[in-house]
Write a protein that binds this DNA or RNA. Structure first.
Lengths: 186, 186
DNA sequence: CGTGTCATGTAATCAGTTACATGATTCA
DNA sequence: TGAATCATGTAACTGATTACATGACACG
């Protein structure tokens, strides 16, 4: 709902390293950037058409047998410019809605054991995420050339780990305190 | 576009501590919970009407002179039940989109000085936020009864501080490394 | 022989934002 | 006198998600 369509830039960015189909883009978003970005077909296909109309991409139809023809999209010069211009601008701030914090804010109206439950739920989710990050991190070991392009994919990972670790500490602190207060009564 | 309308619960939650008008709710969201939740009139007013139709709230018109009449909304028993039921459920996960991380992911296509610029921009924004949190925290000092309802408002603050601090550390590390790599050439 | 993958797309729906409209009162 | 606040609301728009529809091929 932010002012501008960010999906557009995500798609252009994917095309910078070679032609792709809408289907490919969905797979890419589900695999490589799913921890901080998501896309879906209902959005990708219409936007690709719009991008083509605006001459930011062009498409070639690759005939296949049996399956629907693939539409391979390629970035145009104009598309590349638009993408790089966006890329070097600082990111818009996103003061997003956080349902967990909203619940926490109202948690005074809830028995402490229920509060503990929702926090613990969040804690478990966070641990799972952190586990995934650590596993991905392991795969990176040794493979990173410090100056290479993958460096930045790695940085998004390190960001995620840093935040998840901080969250984990907060969960520990808060749960300990809430449980202490509720001594024996659970 | 999450499945369910969370605004609804935010509004019900505000009403739990006394009647309010739509206008009051907007003010509340802008002041007390703005760091993790936002609302706007275009959403509040229509949803209040829907909530009344569903008998989760009822309204009384308070006549005023000059200004439009205030519509004071009160939570019904049913509304209270619906709210508390939501409150004790664990929060939905929100793998939200993060434009900054998207840029970072693609940053290999950018000169290092531009990457540094967008990271520094983010760093400054984070420092401002942390500053605000610290100031709010100061106001709390001494005022908190550890078992009181305000306790949980304070917890949302401590969460925000924890994450902002972690982010600050990450910015430091990353900037140092990027600047080191780019030694002298900026 | 059934599930999964390849590959496209549309329709329906909802969430959320911004801009607009109105108009009196209060305060500097 | 002009800006800010009180207080309501609607309309237009866009972003995003989900469900649906189609159909062949490959793999176990």
């Amino acid at each position: 709902m932010a002012r501008e369509n960010k999906t557009k830039y995500a798609l252009l960015g994917m095309l910078l390293h070679g032609p792709m189909s809408g289907y490919d883009m969905k797979k890419f978003s589900d695999s490589s950037i799913s921890h901080f970005w998501s896309e879906n077909y209902g959005h990708i296909y219409p936007i690709l058409k719009r991008l083509e109309k605006d001459a930011l991409v062009k498409s070639d139809v690759v005939r296949t047998k049996g399956k629907p023809n693939r539409h391979l999209y390629t970035l145009t010069e104009k598309g590349k410019e638009v993408f790089l211009e966006w890329l070097k601008r600082p990111a818009d701030s996103e003061i997003r809605r956080n349902e967990f914090l909203l619940k926490l804010f109202f948690a005074g109206d809830l028995p402490v054991r229920d509060v503990i439950r929702i926090i613990e739920h969040e804690k478990v989710r966070n641990e799972k995420t952190l586990g995934i990050y650590n596993r991905i991190g392991q795969e990176y070991i040794g493979k990173i050339d410090k100056a290479g392009a993958k460096k930045f994919a790695y940085l998004t990972l390190s960001y995620g780990k840093k935040l998840a670790s901080a969250r984990a500490l907060w969960f520990e602190e808060v749960l300990q305190e809430l449980k202490g207060r509720n001594d024996g009564s659970i």
